[in-house]
Simulated scan of single mutants.
Amino acid sequence: MGAGIMTQIAFGLSSVLPGLNHLLSRYAESMMWLARYMERIENLARLLEVTEAFVRGPDGHTGWDSIIQLNSDEDRFFSLHDSATEEDVLVFYVTERANPNSIKAMAHSVRENARAVRPLISTEMWMQLNIFTRWVLDLEFSDIRLNSLSSICNRLKQECQTHFGVTEGTLYRDQAWLFYLLGKHLERSDQITRLIDIRYHTLLPQDEKIGSDIDITQWASVLRSAAAYHAFRRLQPVTTTPANVVGFLLKNEGFPRSLATNLSQLDSTLAALAGHRSLRKRCSSLQERVADLRVTLLDQTADDIIIRGLHEYMTWVQGQLSLLQAEVADAFWPAMPEKPYALEMQSQS
């Protein structure tokens, strides 16, 4: 997943934003995946840290398998490891290059995508990413044992947050910025729905229906996994219920990682792209899909979503986001059609 060999179709946004008149499709793809991978690294670091500290399964042991479920990595993980022990999960998600969802593998993808768009990003962005990815690529499991998981995760989060700050402060506001935003908000939308879906069901008490009361500490871990604990407490200083947590993470437009906020940002970003006449047609189906997602979210309360089927709704949202990503790719970096063999040989001669 990420930027590969792309057609070099240029598209203009000069009437919407100053700067470059054309952006190659391979640049657009790399900007999107640069943002997605950095968001994913920060999110995974937070999940690992919170899981070690707070998440417990029914037997009282740390629920490392919930991270595997959240990332839909069951097949890949158990092809490489026998059981979801702490060490095996940490190796798999931090240092194992055979896992494309590991922090080390994603750091490599960040580096390659940043290299691809080096002419577009600021010197400050490039320098920070260069230092960060070199550090991650040198990480070994012994480093985690030596420095403790918490300190490693803290540095990962800080480096990602530094990247977002440097990008916000130095990246020029042209087409590259818009595709960076698309990646950022697509990733946040996907991650929050996965977190709610997996953690809601794994934290439910045994032999009780969905919507039952549950241990406050465990629900606090869900909020901490989304960097939402303090924001939630500002609105709900006393009461913590499954519906309150789900409602906050899905519908609260004041929280930057909520589904509602990120769908709104996707809508705004696509509107900016569609502001150019030549891109309006490419963006129309994307805007319609985001609008449908926003309407279905707006028309339901958190209690409605839980009663009607939280898992089913989260699965539907994730499916729509996957389709949106595929449609963005089709619209802006369509796959290169294969040349007939004879024509290919002729072009090489």
Rank of each mutant, 00 (worst) to 15 (best):
F11R: 15
F11T: 14
F11L: 09
G12A: 07
L13A: 02
L13G: 08
L13Y: 10
S14E: 10
S14C: 00
S14H: 10
S14R: 09
S15C: 00
S15T: 13
V16L: 02
V16E: 05
V16K: 02
L17Y: 05
L17D: 03
P18H: 04
G19T: 01
G19D: 13
G19L: 08
G19I: 01
L20Q: 08
L20A: 09
N21S: 13
H22C: 01
H22T: 11
H22A: 09
H22E: 05
L23T: 13
L23H: 02
L24W: 03
L24R: 04
S25L: 03
S25D: 05
S25H: 02
S25I: 06
R26W: 04
Y27E: 14
A28N: 07
E29I: 01
E29G: 03
E29Q: 11
E29P: 00
S30M: 05
S30Y: 05
S30F: 05
M31S: 14
M31I: 00
M31L: 14
M31Q: 12
M32C: 12
L34S: 01
A35R: 04
Y37H: 11
Y37M: 12
Y37N: 12
M38C: 15
E39G: 04
E39T: 02
E39H: 04
E39I: 03
R40F: 08
R40K: 14
E42I: 07
E42W: 06
N43A: 13
N43K: 13
N43F: 15
N43L: 12
L44A: 09
L44T: 07
L44E: 11
A45C: 07
A45D: 10
A45E: 09
A45R: 04
R46T: 08
L47D: 02
L48V: 10
L48G: 11
L48D: 12
L48Q: 12
E49N: 14
E49C: 07
T51K: 01
T51D: 07
E52S: 14
A53S: 09
A53K: 15
A53W: 05
A53M: 11
F54T: 03
F54M: 15
F54N: 12
F54V: 07
V55A: 09
V55E: 07
V55C: 06
V55M: 10
R56I: 02
R56F: 01
G57I: 03
D59Y: 04
D59I: 08
D59R: 03
G60K: 11
G60M: 09
G60Q: 09
